[in-house]
Amino acid sequence: MQFVLPQSLADWLPFAAALVTVLYGLWVLIAPGMAFQTIGERDRRYHARSLASARGDIGGFHLGVGLMVLAMYDQPFLQLALGAGWLIAAFGRLVSLAADRSFAFENAVRLLVSLALAGLSLAPPLGYLPV
Rank of each mutant, 00 (worst) to 15 (best):
M1H: 15
Q2D: 13
F3S: 12
F3A: 11
V4Y: 06
V4R: 07
L5A: 07
S8K: 14
L9I: 03
A10S: 11
D11C: 01
D11H: 04
W12R: 07
L13H: 02
P14S: 09
F15S: 09
A16M: 14
L19T: 15
L19C: 12
T21W: 13
V22W: 10
V22G: 04
V22P: 04
L23W: 11
Y24G: 03
Y24V: 10
G25R: 06
L26V: 14
L26C: 07
W27H: 03
A31S: 10
P32V: 14
G33Q: 05
G33I: 07
G33S: 08
G33Y: 01
M34K: 08
M34N: 07
A35N: 05
F36I: 11
F36Q: 03
T38F: 03
E41M: 05
E41H: 09
E41Y: 12
E41D: 05
E41T: 02
R42S: 04
R42C: 02
D43K: 08
D43G: 13
D43R: 08
D43L: 11
R44H: 09
R44D: 06
R45K: 12
A48D: 13
R49M: 15
R49I: 15
R49E: 15
S50D: 14
L51K: 04
A52N: 15
A52E: 15
S53E: 14
R55F: 12
G56I: 00
G56P: 06
I58Y: 14
I58D: 09
G59T: 07
F61Y: 10
V65A: 02
V65E: 00
L67N: 04
M68R: 00
M68P: 02
L70H: 09
M72L: 05
Y73G: 04
Y73M: 04
D74Q: 10
D74K: 10
P76D: 04
P76C: 05
F77E: 01
L78A: 00
Q79L: 01
L80I: 08
A81S: 01
A81P: 00
L82V: 01
A84H: 00
G85A: 05
G85D: 02
I88W: 03
I88N: 01
A89L: 06
A90Q: 05
A90M: 04
F91P: 01
F91T: 04
F91A: 08
R93A: 10
R93K: 14
R93Q: 12
R93V: 04
L94E: 10
L94S: 11
V95W: 02
V95H: 02
S96M: 12
L97F: 12
A98N: 09
A98M: 15
A98K: 11
D100S: 13
R101E: 07
S102A: 15
F103R: 07
F103Q: 06
A104M: 03
F105W: 09
N107Q: 15
N107Y: 07
L111K: 13
V113E: 00
V113C: 08
S114I: 02
S114V: 02
L115V: 07
A116P: 08
L117H: 15
L117G: 13
L117M: 15
G119E: 12
L122P: 01
L122F: 08
A123M: 14
A123Q: 07
P124E: 06
P125T: 14
L126N: 06
Y128L: 15
P130Q: 11
V131K: 03
V131F: 03
